[in-house]
Design a protein around this nucleic acid. Structure first.
Lengths: 225, 225, 225, 225
DNA sequence: AATGAATGAGCGTTCATTCAT
DNA sequence: TATGAATGAACGCTCATTCAT
């Protein structure tokens, strides 16, 4: 809901059909250019060339390049949400199976060119672009909530904050695979083993971690033993 | 001396003291610009401005921008190697304590502005720049070997390949914290909890993981038990 | 139409009337700069200044400087062809009168600033620029054919190859006046006398030269006499 | 003598042996660069590189690039004078043989890379550089005098001015071969035939031309006959 | 004598943007 | 809606020259 509201604040320019087609073409081309050539090649000229039109027309539909970036980003992240939803929201799964599914889906997705490239670029762009930082933040927030739901179910002893911490850890652990095991990355071939290892480790963690361990009472426990 | 060797042929310019100082100033400025303003602002003009000199002089010392990038990257990554070595190479530590130390050092380092920003930029740049990709690859290879040594000691049942898989998983899990828990990142405040969680989880994993679990025989084992 | 064909694929930019005007202005300015300031001053900035516009706009119409050079050169040489054609293709001239006309036209043309400067620059540029060398070659080939036709008519004893040799000699003899008797050149004042001398000498040569003399049988003839 | 005086006005910098060696090296390198790469590549940097030293040192010996150009040009043209002198000043030649020798020497020289390239560059540079124009002027003046001496001997009926006109025509006719029959020029292969043709034509002209023909009284003479 | 260092100007080119058509 | 045209700023790089060493 909140997502929809945020999105409605960025209504695409162009109201009737033909305009929408053009805008779609621009956005698709922009997506392709970003993935295939990187942020440094993400220029109106290349986007125009990739969408078979002239620079002026791209500027006409997106008077500021910033607008294009923002709408593109929203579309891309919405798309990820949808994919995750439709693939994980299967009714007859146990919580553990559902968590395993999320892990597998995420890591397999990271293996794809699109995701490998896109998110490494976004993490960098987020360093100096507040809008991108905000959208990426919101995106992962939803991921954490998603994972958190299952963690809470698997491990009822955890407080909501502990749940979030565990979900954040699980998510970050997986995302960390991107620059190393993603598409054409050095250890791409090890992704299957890493998927098995991550599933084992993260499901085990979600099920067995205690609030005390998160709170850092380990030293105390060790001392008392 | 050894540093020069590690530079693998990328001789640093500057023969006179004054020239060396200037080269230092350029490299420092370049580093600062990259961290503070990002890759899109990493231009000779901004580097020159940041180092109080004229563009032509930067070009004099680094005739190709590529040379500056390469030397800067080599020095930055060498520096990380040295820091890690000096901080972890303490003699009177158990293997578990040493692994914990690495985890803490890495994650604390990730919390720093320099590391948070630098590595997110490098991961993005590596997408379309072979040289950067190669250097980043080599850097993490050393990290994996480093972690792998301890994993092997903690868990002698693992084959060398299993050891590498576990080290890769540990490293990637930690690196994944960068875009989320790093400097000025959304969940920066949760880094202490994540450090505890990661220490607990990753040390436990290193000590208890079995070759069969890495090989994906989990289902079978579970069924037979 | 035929002009466009001769352009051999070098389509002139500028679709709208305004653009065509601008392209004309750029080409005129480029021509002027080359003639008035020489090849070393033939820069986009000076061409832009001379045509009252900004560098970016010159680059917009001629994305590569090379394109500007090529189109400019083609137009200039085409123009020379046309002038020669229209001035010499008069029906009621004897072959000798036609040859004399060509000689006078060429040498008078050489006296002009435009031709004096342009061709000395082109000969130099052709030393290290294959495109220019090729176009200049083709241009003189047409001149040789042109002169050759008349030589063949004047001196039917000559083989086609001899005709070409004589035409080449006549053309080169005249072109040699450029650096010495051309516009503002040291012996500019002697051009009228040289025109008379050249007419006399070259027409006489065309009419009286024998294949044996071209073949170098002079020594034999001398010996037999 | 006058040449020597002019030259003495451009004393080379550097008085003792080592300096002279360096200056020679620079001048040789400059010569090579001009011939091999053309005027557009005639930069201090390339000259320094070609002479195995640093830019600063070239600038030290020739504080202005202009000085280098001037001294280089004087040396080059002096050298041509000397070559011509030593090759033509053979005592036991008839005037006709001496003229033929000059023609052959000039055209053969034009066939060489050095001369082909150098003089085409000089003619262009002379368009916008008064010093070069002056030196080239003086150089050809000597050539004309040289040829004029023989023309006067062959054809005593000619006035001094007529002699100069004929010498100028002969010289220009030969120089005109440079851009067409010189080194790597389109009709290079035809140079032998052109040498024969030029010898025949120019010697004939020198011997038979009359003052009236030079004065343009041809039509009148023809009418009266 | 020789060179490393530094400068200011200029090079061809690309960029996002504006505007008239 | 779409695009050709135009601009001003910036890009990496090369230039001749100056100066301290």
């Amino acid at each position: 809901m909140e997502v929809a509201t945020q999105h409605s604040g960025n209504l695409r320019p162009g109201t009737y059909a033909r305009g929408t087609e053009t805008v779609d073409a621009i956005l698709n081309a922009a997506h392709t250019v970003l993935i295939e050539e990187g942020a440094s090649a993400f220029t109106l000229r290349r986007i125009a060339a990739a969408s078979g039109m002239k620079v002026g027309n791209v500027s006409y539909h997106f008077p500021r390049k910033e607008m294009l970036v923002q709408i593109l980003l929203d579309e891309m992240l919405d798309n990820y949400d949808k994919i995750l939803e439709t693939r994980v929201r299967q009714p007859d799964l146990s919580d553990e199976e559902r968590l395993r599914l999320i892990i597998v889906i995420c890591l397999e997705d990271i293996s794809g060119k699109r995701t490998t490239r896109l998110f490494t670029e976004l993490w960098a762009l987020a360093n100096h672009n507040g809008f991108i930082a905000g959208r990426v933040h919101a995106f992962y927030q939803r991921i954490h909530d998603f994972i958190g739901e299952i963690v809470a179910a698997l491990n009822p002893a955890l407080s909501p904050d502990d749940v979030h911490t565990v979900a954040l850890y699980i998510s970050a652990s997986m995302e960390g695979a991107t620059p190393f095991l993603g598409f054409e990355k050095p250890w791409e071939a090890k992704m299957p083993a890493i998927i098995r290892l991550a599933s084992h480790a993260l499901i085990g963690l979600a099920k067995t971690i205690t609030p005390a361990e998160i709170a850092g009472l380990r030293a105390h426990v060790a001392a008392s033993s």
